[in-house]
Amino acid sequence: MKRTHLPLNALRVFDAAARHLSFTRAADELAVTPAAVGQQIRALEDVLGVVLFRRTPKGLELTDEASAGLDPLRAGFLQIEDAVQAMQAGQSSQVFTIACPPDLFAVWLAPRLAAFRANNPDVRFVLAGAEADFTEANLDLAMRWAEGPGELEGVAVGEAARVTVGDGPWIAWPGDPEPAGAGEPAPLANVADAGQALAAARAGMGRARVPALLAGGQGATAEPCRRGYWLVAPAPQWRQKKVRALVSFLTAD
Rank of each mutant, 00 (worst) to 15 (best):
A186R: 15
A114I: 07
A160R: 12
L231V: 06
T221H: 11
A110E: 15
P185K: 07
A146S: 09
D140C: 09
F77G: 07
R3S: 12
P72D: 03
L44T: 11
L6R: 15
A31H: 15
R12Q: 13
P101K: 06
W170Q: 14
A75Y: 03
G59I: 10
G49H: 13
G206C: 06
R239L: 08
P179F: 03
P72K: 14
Q196S: 14
I41T: 01
D122Q: 15
A36P: 00
A137T: 11
A220K: 09
T33K: 12
V51Y: 05
G49N: 14
R25T: 10
P149A: 06
E136S: 11
E159C: 06
A233V: 15
G228M: 14
N138M: 14
Q218D: 04
W108M: 01
T56I: 06
A200G: 02
A245P: 03
P234R: 03
E159K: 14
P234Y: 03
A68S: 08
H5W: 00
E153I: 00
L214Q: 05
R19T: 13
G219V: 01
G158W: 00
A200F: 09
A245Y: 02
A114S: 12
T135A: 02
Q196W: 03
L213D: 03
E223R: 14
A27Q: 11
A75T: 06
I41Q: 01
E153P: 00
L70F: 14
L6E: 13
A75M: 05
T4E: 05
A160Q: 09
L8P: 02
L48Q: 06
I171A: 03
D71Y: 00
W170F: 15
P121R: 12
G217L: 09
A36I: 03
W230F: 06
L104D: 04
A16Y: 08
F134M: 06
A130Y: 10
D140M: 08
L70R: 15
T251I: 04
E81T: 12
M205W: 12
S92M: 06
D167T: 09
A172Y: 00
Q91S: 04
D46V: 13
V95A: 05
L104F: 10
E65Q: 08
A137Y: 10
Q39H: 11
R226M: 02
L6S: 12
A130I: 08
E151S: 15
E45D: 08
T63H: 03
G166V: 04
T4Y: 04
E61H: 12
Q40H: 05
Q88H: 14
A31L: 15
P57L: 02
A172H: 01
Q79G: 05
R226E: 10
K241T: 13
D28Y: 11
L104P: 07
V247I: 13
E178Y: 13
A252Q: 13
A160N: 05
T221F: 11
E153T: 01
A194I: 03
A130P: 09
D140L: 07
F96E: 05
N119I: 06
P234K: 04
A115R: 14
L60N: 09
S93K: 04
I41G: 00
R42C: 04
A203Q: 13
M1P: 14
N120L: 00
W145Q: 07
P177S: 08
A16V: 04
K2G: 10
P121D: 06
D133Y: 00
A16P: 10
D82F: 11
P185F: 02
R117I: 08
Q237D: 05
M87C: 06
E45P: 11
P174C: 08
I41R: 04
T63Y: 04
R12V: 09
V243A: 07
R162G: 07
L60M: 12
R42I: 07
